[in-house]
């Protein structure tokens, strides 16, 4: 088996395991919130599910930079193979989160008014920007260390919480307004993700494994 294939297998196993764990946690969290509130509020449940998915993408990016990338290189993977494996499966996992969230939201009674295309645009925007931000965090951690990455991470989480929960609870529909208006939002998110992948690649190029 060639190096690239081994790298894809390594990242695939790690990321898919992570995806399953997060899905399980999301279900448990939604059930707990429902039990605590005495009813299962569909709005809040939808907000939680998408929020967990988006944050999970970010957390995984930090984990990749802190643990799984150094581990892969120390096992003998090249930086290029690791970058490809990491990016392929980060995006596959993002796609999985996106599809699951979309399916749940699409079939929740309150949201049936949403067209599939609108949902696709909305969640593509959020997940792609999360993926890009995750790659940015990954690049910053690789270049400047954990604490620098954590600051960006915190700022982004605050921003997302404001946008997501705020828009759901106060019915502001910020995300929907952003995306409904045009596909330029998606285009910007794709460009953002590509730029961040580039930064990540640059940071990995001369990355040093530390004890």
């Amino acid at each position: 088996m060639k190096g690239m294939k081994r790298s894809l297998l390594y990242w695939g196993r790690l990321m898919e395991k992570y995806f399953i764990t997060i899905c399980f946690l999301a279900v448990v969290m939604c059930l707990m919130m429902g039990l605590m509130q005495g009813e299962f509020s569909i709005d809040i449940t939808a907000a939680y599910i998408s929020l967990i998915g988006i944050l999970a993408v970010m957390v995984q990016a930090a984990n990749n930079a802190n643990y799984f990338l150094p581990q892969a290189i120390s096992f003998g993977s090249t930086r290029k193979e690791s970058l490809v494996g990491m990016q392929v499966f980060t995006h596959i996992v993002v796609l999985q989160f996106m599809l699951i969230t979309m399916l749940i939201v699409k079939y929740l009674p309150n949201y049936t008014s949403f067209e599939t295309k609108e949902l696709l645009l909305l969640y593509s925007f959020f997940f792609l920007t999360s993926c890009g931000a995750g790659n940015g965090v990954c690049a910053v951690i690789l270049r400047f260390g954990k604490s620098a990455g954590m600051w960006i991470y915190v700022i982004y989480i605050v921003l997302i919480v404001f946008l997501e929960v705020g828009s759901m609870v106060a019915d502001l529909g910020i995300g929907a307004v952003l995306v409904k208006s045009s596909v330029w939002g998606i285009f910007a998110a794709v460009i953002f993700d590509i730029v961040m992948i580039g930064l990540c690649a640059k940071a990995i190029q001369k990355y040093e494994v530390r004890a």
């Binding site: 081994r6 297998l9 390594y10 196993r13 790690l14 003998g76």
Partner: peptide, 9 residues
């Protein structure tokens, strides 16, 4: 060890 076994040829 499983992760190591995947990457190490």
């Amino acid at each position: 060890l499983q992760a190591a076994s995947i990457v190490m040829p």
